[in-house]
């Protein structure tokens, strides 16, 4: 009985099978950062801001409407609220109770995380500028990174009323932002193919525009 050939066949089938499995399954290929959830220099909670407080994404990431980048807000955007809100509400209530008990005015409570913000802004505990201190930028860790030859344009997607969650996942429930989608080309293409062309859209293959363009130069130039 001969078993060379079955072995060889099995080898081939295995190779092809592995290829298909890698392509189709959740096996992460190099460069795929799906699930990336890095520590940030300030523990900024999207769950609190976008979830509990129900803030609109565009309130801070306003550039997404006008630019290809959504943009990380500058610190003065944070200061818009955090000039007034210097700590969690629980801590404020507690201080009020303690102050009441001690019969004094409640003190300003500054949470350690916001302290980092004020430090970066060069502000003291009373949120007054520290003389000589310059505002320093915060070095956030980029979560959603795409290759430098891919030009993704937030503005177009926002203009078409795409929900941020569709790509970024349930950010309102994330304590720390996590890369929800794999951001692979296939993932982009799948969505483009599934999305109907804009009314009056131009340049679709075939007589009738079928779906959003999947031209190479849509993203690569």
């Amino acid at each position: 009985m001969s078993w060379t050939a079955p072995l060889a066949f099995a080898g081939c089938v295995l190779c092809i099978g592995m290829g298909v499995v890698v392509a189709e399954s959740d096996v992460r290929l190099p460069g795929n950062n799906q699930g990336y959830e890095p520590e940030q220099p300030i523990h900024f909670s999207h769950r609190v801001h976008a979830g509990e407080l129900g803030m609109d994404c565009l309130a801070c990431h306003f550039a997404a409407e006008q630019s290809r980048h959504a943009g990380i807000p500058s610190l003065d955007v944070c200061m818009g609220c955090h000039t007034h809100v210097t700590s969690g509400f629980d801590a404020v209530l507690e201080e009020r109770d303690v102050a009441k008990a001690e019969g004094r005015e409640p003190r300003r409570i500054v949470s350690p995380e916001l302290r980092k913000l004020y430090d970066a802004m060069g502000l003291d505990d009373d949120l007054e500028p520290i003389p000589g201190a310059e505002a320093k930028p915060i070095e956030w860790v980029r979560v959603h990174g795409i290759a430098d030859y891919v030009y993704f344009d937030h503005r177009v997607h926002v203009a078409r009323d795409l929900a941020c969650e569709q790509c970024h996942g349930p950010v309102q429930s994330m304590e720390r932002v996590r890369q929800e989608s794999d951001l692979s080309m296939g993932w982009c293409i799948d969505c483009h193919r599934a999305s109907p062309a804009e009314p009056g859209a131009v340049g679709m293959v075939g007589a009738e525009p079928k779906h959003v363009s999947i031209d190479c130069v849509r993203c690569h130039y």
Binding site: A63, P73, L75, W140, V141
Partner: peptide
Amino acid sequence: TRGPTRLVVPRPTGAEGVVPGR
């Protein structure tokens, strides 16, 4: 384990009319 970490450094105070990437 995920290759080089890339940092995003926004300006500390926003400049009027300057939108990143625009």
